[in-house]
């Protein structure tokens, strides 16, 4: 085997090692998550499985719960629930209006 092929084998070996590291870390993290009891128990207590990804728009907080007249009107977890949500924030004054005095 020539020096160049040896170098190639080393480079490809390192690339394979990178991927193997990623796969091993992913498997470790998944196993850790599956073994974590607190998460499952939390959902058992509150019985709402949704992720807390939006605390500012209540219709996105629980996509599993349809809310007629709001973005998730037609079905739970409906498509296009927040078409411009990633682009446009609400005017601050709107949030201020909900302030209790």
């Amino acid at each position: 085997m020539t020096g160049r092929l040896r170098a190639l084998a080393i480079v490809l070996g390192l690339a394979a090692l990178l991927i193997a590291t990623v796969l091993a870390d992913a498997a470790r993290r998944r196993a850790a998550r599956d073994a974590e009891a607190s998460h499952r128990l939390l959902v058992r207590v509150i019985r709402l499985p949704d992720l807390a990804l939006s605390s500012s728009s209540r219709w996105l907080r629980h996509p599993s719960q349809a809310e007629p007249g709001a973005a998730l009107a037609d079905l739970p977890a409906g498509l296009d629930v927040d078409p411009a949500g990633a682009l446009i924030g609400p005017p601050r004054a709107v949030l201020e209006a909900g302030r209790s005095r």
Binding site: R33, E36, S38, H39, L42, V43, I46, P49, D50, L51, A52, L53, S55, R61
Partner: peptide, 12 residues
């Protein structure tokens, strides 16, 4: 609530 379940419990 916290740790691993923060993604479900942040605003709970």
């Amino acid at each position: 609530f916290g740790g691993g379940s923060a993604i479900r419990s942040a605003d709970l």
